[in-house]
């Protein structure tokens, strides 16, 4: 396990309020994978990451990161991890190359070694062209790649990425995914946070869903979705949904029925057998359909099931 936590907690106290940002988190993250931390704004993702990367002392609980105890050996942990914060970490007035070289030097590299490693990274992150320009002249995607390069300078075993793709256009996001996968394939474990469902689904080998400081679900994206239900059938009617609801609710093949944006979502075991039954039932009741479609459940369905809210709404 590259990360193991038990009962990890963090409480922020101020004069006016007490916020339990992380309320007892147990995590087991295996080495060599991309582990995702999915949750809405304020769920406690950054706070957890900051604790695991030695920036913030936990209020309670224990953790070992990259083989070392977080409380007793923070220096050892620091040597083995890289951390790229939500804000980034590079400074406007400094060139990309200088930021990289300094980072390497802070981990004890000689100047020559740091310069060589910086050149390697600039090449592989396709930043060589801008290496000697100040970072304020970089595009969002270039800046983000540099920040990740900074986190990789000392060849860490484990890289923490806090929302690596927030604010990137779809093209840059796809590139970032490629980059993260390449890292994993080279043997670096990656722990990243995101509030994008698609990202958690497509990029992560395993993920944990966090809400209000608690893990509400954990597993591979496939496992999580399978746990919700086999399939989701979306039913739209020409009139109000009330009549359709009445007909479909409490049928034994419908595990759960929710309504969102004026359409019904039916969680069923097998979509292929459920669809004909639904058609027959609605037809029999004289209800006209506007849409009928079959979906694999998304991680949003998982979130909805576990928390009663949609991640799309809470993240907006």
């Amino acid at each position: 396990m590259i990360i193991r936590t038990r009962g990890l907690r963090r409480v922020f106290r101020s004069r006016r309020s007490t916020v339990e940002a992380v309320a007892g988190v147990d995590l087991d993250v295996g080495a060599g994978q991309i582990f995702g931390f999915l949750g809405p704004n304020g769920a406690g993702k950054t706070t957890t990451l900051r604790m695991l990367s030695t920036l913030l002392p936990p209020t309670g609980g224990e953790a070992s990161v990259a083989g070392h105890d977080l409380r007793r050996e923070p220096d050892r942990v620091r040597q083995r991890i890289g951390y790229v914060s939500q804000e980034g970490g590079s400074y406007d007035d400094v060139t990309g190359r200088r930021e990289l070289v300094l980072q390497g030097r802070l981990y004890g590299m000689s100047r020559a070694r740091a310069e060589q490693r910086a050149a390697e990274l600039l090449e592989s992150l396709e930043l060589a062209e801008f290496a000697d320009r100040r970072t304020k002249t970089y595009s969002g995607g270039q800046r983000r790649r540099l920040d990740i390069g900074i986190g990789l300078m000392h060849l860490p075993d484990l890289l923490f990425l806090d929302e690596p793709t927030t604010g990137l256009d779809p093209q840059s996001r796809a590139r970032m995914w490629e980059e993260v996968r390449r890292l994993r394939d080279q043997g670096t474990s990656v722990f990243l946070t995101t509030h994008y469902l698609e990202e958690a689904d497509a990029l992560c080998d395993r993920l944990a869903i966090i809400d209000h400081g608690r893990i509400v679900a954990e597993g591979t994206p496939e496992e999580l979705k399978r746990e919700v239900a086999g399939d989701v059938v979306v039913v739209g009617t020409t009139g109000t949904t009330a009549a359709a609801r009445e007909v479909l609710d409490a049928r034994e093949f419908v595990r759960e029925l929710t309504e969102e944006d004026g359409v019904l979502r039916l969680y069923v075991d097998r979509g292929e057998t459920a669809m004909p039954q639904i058609l027959r039932l609605l037809d029999g009741a004289g209800i006209a359909l506007s849409t009928l479609s079959l979906h694999r459940p998304t991680l949003d369905d998982v979130f909805l099931r576990k928390t009663g809210r949609s991640l799309r709404e809470t993240a907006a």
Binding site: T54, D75, R78, G82, E87, G89, L106, Y107
Partner: peptide, 8 residues
């Protein structure tokens, strides 16, 4: 924060 994560 970036500096504080290093052994500096």
């Amino acid at each position: 924060e970036r500096f504080r994560v290093t052994p500096c």
